[in-house]
Write a protein that binds this DNA or RNA. Structure first.
Lengths: 209, 209
DNA sequence: GTCTATACTGGGATAGAC
DNA sequence: GTCTATCCCAGTATAGAC
């Protein structure tokens, strides 16, 4: 077992893997797993196609790696609310964080969206293993806030479905939104407008004014 | 020009085309254009793979046809509100219709979602040509309601982005939602719950209570 | 008019070179 | 340890049979 020691990756390996992963995120976002080609990813990463298969044995390995990375940032970035806060600022922080993720990492959101729409062939286990427990814990927190009369009685899982959809649509459907708003790409101020509207709606629903 | 007369399609052709289109909708929804294979569509339609190419020359032709069909139902189903109505019932009708479409034709919604997330390579022209004018007209109507003090001042395009996202998420993300709610598939009552919440939020935002 | 055997292409993966 | 010539299969499309 000579490889048990977590040897430092060679500089060249590090550089190439990073380039591949970055390229893969863009290509997978646009094409989805099935339609993406290792050729396109390699080209975008600036390495020969066949070389990509040296660093990532299969296309599936590469895709899985990309999903894991995204899931990491995702769950850590939006996990900072707890029972001691008040519901209004907890929700506000969460929604602002989600909108900011959509603005700064739209590809990540798109990859997720396509994966789920396809029936989550790769993410189903993660949905059950990571996201479900996460939501159950949050639901518990909200239930206690409701019991304490700090907010209105709402269906908590559905509240999250709606928040997810509203915040992520500005990443996933940016093409359509850009066309309607007649601009090359969405600006910070569009996300701010959206965020304000979402907050109003959610606060009203939860009776937090 | 013997074919100028719009001859009735033969019965066998009609039957096969219908079967192919129906199968295509399911496969394109799950895979997207690029990853879908004509073989899988043919198999699902119950005809030999090569035969499909007799009825639809190219995969692109088939996909375009599917998109057109969807766009048809889409635009007609949700186009029945005008200046003379009051904003509350207009919005309620629209949202109920959208939710009903998500419930009864989830594949259609998924195909659209994937197409847009991919940058709308096939739909870009339709977005500019059909959907944009549609939204512009609706925006005009809402502006007049706002001017008459019948509802609060809201950003109309963004209001639609949010309504679209909330209503469509129950079709597009049904896999995730089913897992969270721990059921095989979504029931009518889940859509009803969602609809009520969406209506509450939208009415509150527009000050329609 | 309807169907299928077959050609051709592009893409994932590997054996072996450097 | 790094890279690439090459293989093989899957997938679209067609030429020609029925």
């Amino acid at each position: 077992m000579t490889t048990m020691i977590p040897r430092r990756k060679s500089r060249i390996r590090q550089r190439n893997e990073d380039a591949i992963l970055k390229a893969a995120e863009i290509v997978f976002a646009q094409r989805g797993f099935g339609a993406a080609t290792t050729a396109e990813i390699a080209k975008r990463a600036g390495i020969p196609k066949a070389n990509l298969h040296y660093y990532f044995n299969t296309k599936e390995d590469l895709y899985t790696q990309v999903l894991e990375n995204i899931l990491g940032t995702w769950l850590t970035a939006a996990d900072d609310f707890n029972e001691d806060q008040d519901p209004k600022s907890a929700l506000e922080n969460y929604i602002r964080t989600k909108i900011e993720l959509s603005r700064t990492r739209p590809e990540a959101s798109k990859i997720f969206a396509k994966e789920i729409i396809s029936g989550a062939p790769f993410l189903k286990d993660h949905l059950r293993g990571d996201i479900n427990p996460w939501l159950e814990e949050k639901t518990r927190i909200f239930q206690s806030w409701i019991a304490q009369g700090k907010m209105a009685q709402v269906n908590v899982p559905h509240l999250f479905f709606l928040i997810w959809s509203m915040t992520q649509t500005y990443a996933d459907f940016s093409t359509q939104i850009s066309i309607v708003l007649d601009k090359e790409k969405l600006e910070k101020k569009d996300f701010d407008t959206a965020c304000d509207m979402i907050l109003s709606m959610v606060f009203a629903l939860c009776n937090l004014n």
